[in-house]
Every structure is written in structure tokens, then in C-alpha cells.
Amino acid sequence: MNNRHEAFDPADDAAMELRIWEYIDGLSTDAERSEIEQLLVEHAAWREKYKELLSVHQMLDATELEQPSMRFTRNVMDEIARLQIAPATKAYIDKKIIWGIGAFFVTVIVGFLVYGLSQIDWSAGASGTSKMLGVDFTEVDYSQVFNNNFVNVFIMLNITLGLILLDLYLTQRRKTWQQA
């Protein structure tokens, strides 16, 4: 048996610690276990670290849970006595409805695209972008377009949907940030 004390650099030390923790937790494969057992036999530094980590592991294993007050269960039961179990989520959220809403929006978008594309004069030659689209944007009277109630409602609807999506995106980002 070799009892020499090897000088490990910090990176090696961290790697050694991780491998020993996996060994103690029973997460190592059979091959890794054999290898670590061999290292424990051969190297004093590994044995020392193993002893240290095993002691922490045993301390954590021996800790007891905190106890709430004696009235805790009674308090919970008193609280739920006034409540009813909510129906299962799947009972009131039908996936078909969600798919239906999705299909409606996709149809509307596709409809607008088809209508828009069909209005373009593809044969019109042009020197500028506005001519290429068959429309001279400098001559469009925007006040006529935005006076239309339908267009205004459509824009408002899109802004609302945009805000909802932005809120969902920010919530998701916050969750990811909290997990990190």
C-alpha cells in the first residue's frame, strides 16, 4: 500500500471530490467504483478526502426534520373544512378548444396573406420599391385607412395579443433566471 501524500492541484482536488461524492451517493458505475476503491487503497490523499466527505454525508444523513406546532394538522384540517377539491384541470381545459383557437388565428393570418398577395400587381415594372409592389406609397392617403373602424379594432387586437405574448415571454425569462 502506498501511503504517500500527493500534492493535488485545485482542479484535480475538485474532480477527486466530485468522484468521491458520486461514489458515496451510489451514483458511480461498477467500473468507476472499482477504480475509486483502487485509488482509495493506493493514495492517502484520496483516503483522507473520502473520510472527510463521508463524515459530512453521515452528519447530513443523521439530521432530523424540523417539527411544526402540535396544532398544525388541526389548523390545516380546519382550513380545508371550508374548501372543496377543485375539478381536475383537464376537465375544464379541453385541448380541442386550444387547437381550435390556434387554427382560427392561423386561418386568419393565411387569409390576410393570400388576400394581400393577390392584390399585388406582379406585372408592374418599377424603378423603386413602391413601383415594384404596384403601389406608390407617397400617394397613399393614410387618414382614409386608419379611419376605418375595422382596421383600428384589428390593430388594437394585435397590440393586445402582442402585449400578452410579451408578458408570457418575460414570465418565462424570469422563471429561467430564478432557476439559474
Binding site: E66, P68, S69, F72, V76, I80, L83, I85, A88, A91
Partner: peptide
């Protein structure tokens, strides 16, 4: 209760939190 104590300092707050957790679990049991 132990997990609740990991999040809040006082035992009173932890107990209130633990109670909320069981109430929520009961409501969502289905």
C-alpha cells in the same frame, strides 16, 4: 415545514407557508 423553513426565517411564517402548501395540495388533489 422543514423546506418552508429553508425559505423563510421565522417558524411562524414557515408554519403559515406550510399550511398554505397543504391547502393548495388539497384543492389540487384531483
Amino acid at each position: 415545514f422543514t423546506i418552508a423553513l429553508r425559505y423563510v426565517k421565522g417558524r411562524e411564517d414557515a408554519e403559515e407557508l406550510a399550511q398554505d402548501i397543504f391547502v393548495k395540495a388539497y384543492r389540487s388533489l384531483a
